[in-house]
Simulated assay, not measured.
Amino acid sequence: MKKDIHPQLNKLEIECSTCSKKHELSTTSKEVTIDVCSGCHSFYTGDTSVAKATGRIERFKRRASAARK
């Protein structure tokens, strides 16, 4: 294996800007930011109140049920 050709691996502790939960990851980047993590994303939490406000979920369910018929 050749020496000095591989990028430097950095261990970072990043913080979600929405819920302030801290995550640790290894990356070759020096700086990483996240807006939404699994701790606050509606898909993982089951809270669809934010998504329902726009009506997209209801529209999708109507189209899906019409397609099944």
Rank of each mutant, 00 (worst) to 15 (best):
I34N: 06
M1H: 14
E58V: 06
V36R: 05
I14L: 01
S49R: 14
T45I: 03
V32C: 03
C40Q: 02
T28F: 13
S38V: 14
A53Q: 15
S20W: 01
T54F: 14
L12P: 02
S38Y: 07
K2D: 13
M1Q: 14
L9T: 15
C37Q: 01
K22R: 14
A66G: 09
G55Q: 02
F60V: 15
T54N: 15
L9I: 15
T48G: 11
K11E: 09
S20F: 06
D35L: 10
K3D: 11
F60M: 11
M1V: 10
T48M: 12
E31D: 12
S42V: 04
V32L: 09
R56W: 10
I34P: 00
V32S: 00
L25P: 03
S29Q: 07
K61A: 11
S38F: 05
S42G: 08
A66N: 15
H41W: 00
T33M: 05
S65D: 10
S42H: 14
E58H: 09
V36H: 02
A51M: 13
G55E: 00
K69H: 07
S38C: 13
K69L: 08
Y44G: 03
I57Y: 07
S20Y: 06
S17K: 15
F60H: 10
K2H: 12
L25R: 09
S42W: 13
R68H: 06
K30M: 07
K30V: 01
I57C: 06
P7H: 04
K3N: 10
K30I: 04
S26G: 07
T54Q: 13
S38A: 14
C37I: 02
T33N: 08
T33Q: 09
A67G: 10
V36I: 15
S20C: 11
R59A: 13
S38M: 11
T27Y: 02
A53I: 04
T27G: 06
K11M: 03
N10I: 01
A51L: 12
L12M: 03
R56G: 14
M1K: 14
T27P: 01
G39W: 02
R59I: 11
T33V: 06
K69Q: 14
R56L: 10
L12C: 00
G46T: 04
I57D: 15
T28G: 03
R56S: 14
